[in-house]
Design a protein around this nucleic acid. Structure first.
Length: 578
DNA sequence: CTTTCTCTAAAGTGCACTGTGGCCAGTGC
């Protein structure tokens, strides 16, 4: 049982309750329970196993008991019974656009359709258009959607959508009726993966804008097109929704479409307490005794009206940001311009595409004043990892380059493999000659959680290990994280003064943002590292800043905000004095 | 099913768009 599989079961239950036409709020409770499980900032699996799921918002008596049963026995009777009622193949129908629980129920009950294949046959035999609530157009749309269903993924990495978002925002700004534009949704909140792209336009001519968007490049087909909203499927996969509102409505729509849903629900409740109703178009009084509504021109005015300091979009996950805003205790989040340098980068010496000199020049070009090099160690032979002799040669080369330049510092490091037993790929004699060392796992991914956690802890206990590389080993949308106990690793990092890396390669974004606040509160420092294998990947730092902000990190929590002088002194200190 | 300044009772976001069927319901966000 993992956190994710536990959440998936709750979502699956919600889907089945929907098919049974259950109380919509019960269904919602399971969905929101799944969300709580996914984002709870502690080891919720262990809490459940120990029967300690009390006082968690969104988890009441019923969900608490079910999660406890799941965590202790690995099974859930309620879920197993529910599953008997529907064939497993039925759930694929939810992926068909335009089909929801109501229609799927009709198909299953009245036509005994229980799979995509059944549905396709029925459409081809013209049986669907005759059903009540269906028609010829619906039948055609279902067939189209069945044929297209494997073409598009449901989620995308941040790096997949950044370029097209910038391009579309520019095009929207070009329209003469445009007053303001913004990207909203999970992109603005800097989630590690994005569902769809939400763009917002303040305009005096909404219908003109939606018609204009229909002509944009990179559109595969149009999903819906109305006077104030258009949804298109882009050729590189994501769906893009553009909404056109008036300039007066813009701040409300921006707040609303940025989400998260959970954050917005809490914000709306706050408005209701003041006698106001908040939606995407404005703030209105619900009764005559309500407080007077102040003038709203910007998003921050909405938060101010509700007695809150401005909540940065990255924090809007309903994970305590509203309480903190009320007490005026939100962190001053790190910004891109605070970065002075970075660690964990590769060169042609191992599996990088550019030389030491080229990487240095690129870092200077970006305005950085220091760069850490950490090529792979000898066990990563697939990546041409360096042995002791080559590493010593690289250290000497870095020292020579530093002597010839007093405006920029290269730090000699290594991304040293953590071997199966937790020992390191180089001995202490070699490690002590480095300026710093990143310890990472590149082999034996499938270990029991306890064994893996002990393996990493043993590496962190080494006084030469400056920081831990990509903690979970996940590759977003591609490879699962290995089993590792984040909470224990964070505790160990705090004790041993080991820095944890925020690997900001958009395929990794590891350690996950959900753990950073906890780490920060225990005094663990972060290093934002691009894991660059060529010069252009140094730009990944900008994803790192976004995810660090999402993890509530401030300038002082991140070592690469230190000046060149300070970081040099810092790295020379013994680990336990850092 | 969960939460709550009505606490063994009630409330819980609300709208655009589409297609169908007759002035609405389902879907999706």
């Amino acid at each position: 049982m993992t956190r994710e599989s536990m959440a998936d079961i709750l979502d699956k239950i919600a889907q089945m309750l929907e098919l049974k036409d259950e109380n919509p709020f019960k269904i919602k409770a399971y969905r929101s329970g799944a969300e709580v499980v996914r984002s709870y900032p502690d080891d919720i699996l262990q809490l459940a196993a120990e029967g300690k799921l009390t006082g968690i918002k969104g988890i009441g008596d019923a969900l608490r008991d079910k999660l406890t049963e799941l965590a202790t026995t690995g099974k859930l009777g309620f879920y197993e019974e529910l599953r008997q009622e529907f064939p497993a193949s039925l759930f694929a129908l939810f992926d068909i656009q335009g089909l929801g629980a109501k229609k799927i129920k009709i198909l299953f009950r009245d036509c005994h359709i229980s799979s995509i294949e059944d549905l396709q046959k029925a459409c081809e035999n013209n049986q669907i258009s005759a059903l009540a609530g269906f028609g010829a157009k619906t039948q055609t749309n279902i067939l189209e959607s069945i044929k297209r269903r494997h073409t598009y993924a449901a989620q995308f990495r941040l790096s997949t959508v950044t370029t097209i978002i910038d391009e579309y925002l520019d095009l929207l700004r070009d329209h003469p009726s445009t007053l303001r534009v913004a990207a909203c949704g999970s992109y603005r909140r800097s989630k590690e993966v994005i569902g769809d792209i939400d763009l917002l336009v303040a305009t005096s001519a909404p219908a003109e804008i939606t018609a204009y968007v229909a002509t944009f490049p990179g559109i595969d087909h149009i999903l819906v097109h109305g006077d104030t909203k258009i949804s298109v499927r882009l050729t590189n996969g994501p769906q893009c929704d553009v909404r056109a509102v008036s300039n007066r409505q813009f701040p409300f729509a921006l707040q609303y479409f940025t989400g998260s849903k959970e954050h917005n629900v809490a914000i709306r409740q706050r408005a209701l307490q003041r006698g106001w109703s908040l939606n995407e178009y404005g703030l209105t009084s619900t009764n005559e005794n309500a407080e007077v509504i102040p003038e709203i021109n910007e998003e921050k005015d909405i938060y101010a009206a509700l007695g809150l300091s401005f909540i940065d979009p990255e924090l809007r996950e309903n994970l305590g940001e509203i309480d903190a805003a009320e007490r005026n205790e939100l962190p001053q989040l790190i910004q891109q311009e605070n970065l002075r340098g970075t660690f964990h980068n590769h060169t042609t010496e191992s599996d990088g595409k550019h030389t030491l000199a080229e990487m240095k020049a690129a870092a200077e070009e970006l305005g950085l004043s220091y760069l850490g090099i950490s090529d792979h160690s000898k066990s990563s032979f697939q990546a041409r990892g360096l042995d002791e002799a080559r590493l010593l040669g690289q250290i000497a080369e870095i020292r020579r380059m530093n002597e010839a330049d007093d405006t920029f510092t290269l730090f000699a490091g290594s991304e040293v493999d953590i071997l199966k037993d937790g020992s390191l790929d180089f001995d202490d004699e070699i490690l002590s000659q480095l300026d710093y060392c990143v310890a990472s796992i590149h082999s034996s991914f499938t270990m029991e959680e306890d064994t893996m956690t002990r393996r990493i802890i043993r590496a962190m206990e080494n006084p030469h290990v400056t920081m831990l590389g990509h903690l979970s080993g996940r590759l977003l949308l591609q490879r699962e994280a290995y089993s590792v106990n984040h909470a224990k690793i964070i505790d160990c990092a705090a004790e041993t003064r080991t820095i944890i890396e925020l690997n900001c390669n958009p395929r990794r974004l590891d350690m996950d943002w959900r753990w950073w606040r906890r780490a920060r509160d225990k005094g663990v420092l972060c290093s934002i590292n691009p894991d660059a294998h060529n010069v252009s990947q140094l730009q990944y730092l900008h994803f790192g800043i976004r995810l660090a902000r999402k993890g509530w990190l401030r300038r002082e929590d991140v070592i690469n905000t230190k000046s060149r002088e300070n970081i040099t002194a810092f790295l020379q200190l013994p680990k336990d004095q850092r």
